[in-house]
């Protein structure tokens, strides 16, 4: 009885909370939805129906993909390709670096392990943005300006992804590693045969951290690779907006394309975060 009335009370307060949650969600989505709608109408139509507000503000007279077609035929397409390739190599190489380091820090018994881990935590505390400007000066001196290497390298020294994988690897029962060692596996073999197959979820998590870092970055590519042939999408969009006589329809199409890729990845990989496979290896 008590239980039942409690759930009924909860349901009532849940409905009241819904009245607050829905407007907040709408406010949160509105700028993206408006950008999405604007990307489907001709540039000159975007500001026509704003004051006074009318139903035409939200519903275009005609819907067309022309903005997307012209953006994909413009130099912005190259910027999008640059962004995707830089992110791909950043994630792939960054994962290798992070998995090796996280595994060594979690599993290998060697003297100085705590010191190395402390060193990585200290590095993690120096915000990348704060040192981006002095770092970009040394990158320029090394001839890495306007190169893919210059764009990719900073993403590889990612303390957060190392930390995440170390935490997960520490949760895998060490009896598995010991058994592997007794069977004559090298330490690298233990990583490849035992740890990595158990670590799909955390590897995807670390990959997303690396991807978001790379896809979000704006200050660094602006400093190190502003040239049109290596420019990434966020820099290209900022350049776009600062042109005179910018076509806002096309600008919104470019914005939506740049935003859509991380959104799709987030939605696609979301289910991999739930549930851990760490404990499934042993019968304990």
């Amino acid at each position: 009885m008590v239980n039942q009335s409690a759930t009924r009370g909860e349901a009532r307060s849940g409905r009241r909370a819904l009245l607050l949650a829905v407007p907040v969600a709408i406010v949160s989505m509105a700028p993206l939805v408006w950008a999405g709608i604007s990307s489907l109408r001709p540039g000159e139509e975007i500001f026509r129906y704003l004051s006074p507000f009318s139903w035409r503000t939200l519903f275009p007279e005609s819907v067309s993909l022309d903005n997307y077609l012209s953006v994909l035929q413009s130099p912005f397409a190259l910027a999008l390709v640059n962004s995707v390739s830089v992110a791909f190599f950043g994630v792939a190489l960054g994962l290798v670096v992070a998995a090796l380091a996280g595994y060594a820090l979690a599993v290998l018994p060697f003297p100085g392990r705590t010191a190395v881990f402390a060193f990585m935590v200290v590095c993690f505390l120096v915000p990348f943005e704060a040192i981006a400007i002095p770092l970009s000066a040394s990158f320029r001196e090394m001839g890495l300006a306007n190169s893919y290497a210059g764009l990719i390298l900073p993403a590889l020294g990612n303390g957060l992804s190392i930390f995440l994988l170390r935490q997960f690897f520490m949760g895998i029962p060490s009896s598995l590693a010991e058994a592997g060692r007794l069977d004559g596996l090298s330490w690298f073999g233990v990583l490849r045969r035992i740890y990595l197959p158990l670590s799909r979820g955390p590897m995807i998590g670390a990959g997303l951290i690396l991807f978001v870092f790379q896809w979000q970055s704006f200050l660094w590519p602006l400093l190190i690779a502003p040239a049109p042939d290596v420019r990434v999408a966020p820099v290209a969009i900022a350049d776009f907006a600062q042109e005179t006589g910018v076509d806002y329809g096309q600008m919104f199409a470019a914005a939506i394309l740049t935003a859509a890729i991380p959104l799709l990845l987030l939605l696609f990989f979301q289910r991999h975060f739930t549930g851990s496979t760490a404990s499934s290896g042993t019968k304990e």
Partner: peptide
């Protein structure tokens, strides 16, 4: 074990030195 640890940690330590510590010192 010691050699494996060095090999596994080398890339991360070199990158962090190059990308975090050296620019801070610079």
């Amino acid at each position: 074990t010691w050699i494996s640890a060095v090999v596994l940690l080398l890339p991360a330590v070199v990158l962090l030195l190059l990308l975090r510590i050296i620019p801070t010192v610079t």
